[in-house]
């Protein structure tokens, strides 16, 4: 005789529980994917910009070669700067193309001179000090290490991650609440059976064990169903991202399946703990 068979549980209650857990696990998988995707996207953006900076030399009165040479000398003497190369006219034209197209000639535009700077990511120059040196040389140059952009990207990623974490917490709370409610309902319905078990010498933890076993299986069943559906949906999103290149950072990596597996394990553990604590608390309070 299985321990779980000692208490007669309603099959319909179990099915409802599995469906609710499956829905929550599905949402939890996407919340987790959102967290990882946001981090990955932010990393992709910031990594693309790290190690690179630009110096823009103003163009209203034209830019002389002397100005460019002064700026280049300052840059090359600066610790942490690996390379400083002025962009060619073609490269500047390519940068302006999205806004002005190919029709106007570069000479007709007050385009600034851009110097691409490659810097050591582990030894980045202090931008304020470098800017002060450029100002001191009077070349009208502005140093941009993309720090503001990187900061905004990181902050956007943090915001998305926090929202996703919040969604994960809400899913966990919803599962715990469903377990608590269904266990309480079952304890009330099985009051006579549990009293008989107690009179036969069952300790509270034995009764809790019966519920733990049941909710372990319900949690696993709901978790596997929900995560399998989420996994299938994620593969579909991945296929879309890979084909369209719209969201390359969301494309799955080799260990993508670890997320759903972690959700299944987490859901099962959550169900077991919530069931155990609810039973022990109810029995000790005289339910």
């Amino acid at each position: 005789m299985r321990r779980g068979a000692l208490i007669s549980f309603q099959a319909s209650g179990g099915l409802l529980m599995v469906l609710i857990v499956a829905a929550m696990a599905f949402l939890a998988c996407f919340a987790m994917a959102g967290t990882l995707g946001a981090s990955k996207l932010a990393n992709a953006w910031t990594e693309g910009l790290s190690g690179a900076a630009t110096v823009r030399i103003g163009a209203e009165d034209g830019v002389s070669q002397d100005q460019v040479d002064i700026v280049l000398d300052i840059l090359r003497e600066t610790d942490g700067v690996i390379e400083a190369t002025p962009l060619t006219d073609e490269e500047v034209a390519a940068l302006l193309e999205p806004w002005f197209g190919t029709t106007p000639r570069l000479e007709d535009l007050p385009a600034p001179t851009i110097i691409a700077v490659r810097i050591d990511p582990l030894n980045e120059p202090e931008s304020a000090i470098l800017q002060a040196r450029l100002d001191g040389a009077g070349a009208g140059a502005i140093y941009d290490d993309h720090g503001e952009w990187r900061g905004r990207a990181a902050s956007a990623a943090r915001a998305v991650r926090n929202v996703a974490l919040g969604a994960l917490i809400i899913c966990a709370l919803a599962i715990a609440m469903v377990v608590v409610l269904t266990v309480r309902s079952s304890l009330a319905a099985q009051r006579a059976t549990i009293a008989t078990l107690r009179l036969a010498g069952a300790e509270d933890r034995f009764v809790a064990g019966v519920y733990q076993t049941r909710y372990l299986w319900l949690g696993l069943a709901g978790g596997v169903i929900g995560c399998a559906m989420a996994g299938a949906a994620m593969l579909a999103v991945d296929a879309l991202a890979s084909v369209g290149r719209a969201l390359p950072a969301l494309a799955a990596t080799g260990q993508w399946w670890l997320g759903p597996v972690a959700v299944v394990v987490f859901v099962a553990v959550l169900c077991v703990l919530a069931a155990r604590l609810t039973v022990l608390r109810a029995l000790r309070s005289g339910a």
Binding site: M1, A5, L6, A195
Partner: peptide
């Protein structure tokens, strides 16, 4: 105070089962 969902043998075995004995 017999448990209606268990057989006669399972009802009789109840004190042994809750004490942790194996079938």
């Amino acid at each position: 105070r017999l448990l209606d969902h268990l057989t006669a043998a399972e009802n009789v075995a109840l004190p042994l089962r809750v004490a942790g004995a194996k079938v």
